[in-house]
Amino acid sequence: MRTRLVWILLFLGPALAALLIFLVIPIFASFVLSVTDFDVYALADWSRARFVGLSNFQELLSDPLFWRSLLNTLYCLIVAMPLTVAISLGVAMLINREKTRFKGLFRVIYFLPFVTNTVAIAVVWSWILNMHYGLLNWFLGLFGISGPNWLGDPTFAMSSIIMLVVWKAIGYNMILFISGLQNIPDFLYEAAELDGASGWQKFVHITIPMLRPTMLFVTTMMLIGYLQLFEEPYMLTDGGPLNSTLSVVLYLYRQGFRFFELGYASALAVALFLIIITITLIRMRLSKQVS
């Protein structure tokens, strides 16, 4: 029996209308804006925006700051993703061990950073990373290491950002890994033990393959999330020094909402969108090939 139209409209209407207005239409609008020179003058009077074809994209391709921001973002992704996976999987396995006590407590503690406001905790981190008065360099000093100028040195600034990013992401991924681990049936391990498999062999031949769905989810979410890096560099370095921490979204924000080059910023948004889609599809294709 079909549902009456009135109910369909009533139940689906609000959600679909909102998605249409705030998601679907804006996506198309982004494409439209990206081929205009919409800027601060057009903001005062929309008719001053002109169609400029693909010239925003041409400019983008020859814009060293765009490439810089893209490389920075990819660098963050390439370093932070394996780090996050390794640490959160490691922690998950340690907590998930039968013998480990205080499981609940550890889980909560590792999870704390994830629910924390990035902007506010970045303020704390920038104080911890302070070259002279920061906790981190004091700690390194205990071991006779004179800590670097974390936020002021272009070779370390991105590492500082990655530190914060990973610190925040561990808890969330750890929870996902724990629930993935719990879904692996015990008999697989028991059988392997009977065959005399070592801990490492069990990890490689049972844990990793059995975690594949979790891994796919975790890495896909991470790809999408890390490619949108914004709050950490915005708060810690504002993209500096030497633009070494300028991320694509930070550059988009700067062009769009500091200089109000909204046409150009839309081109950046479209480019980012295409990059995210491409990388995600590659990721999914890869995982299909493996399985």
Binding site: N130, M131, H132, Y133, G152, D153, P241
Partner: peptide, 16 residues
């Protein structure tokens, strides 16, 4: 001159 953000007033006071 240092390429580090410090606390200017505090550093002026300490002489750094």
């Amino acid at each position: 001159a240092l390429k580090a953000g410090g606390e200017l007033i505090h550093d002026f006071g300490s002489g750094a």
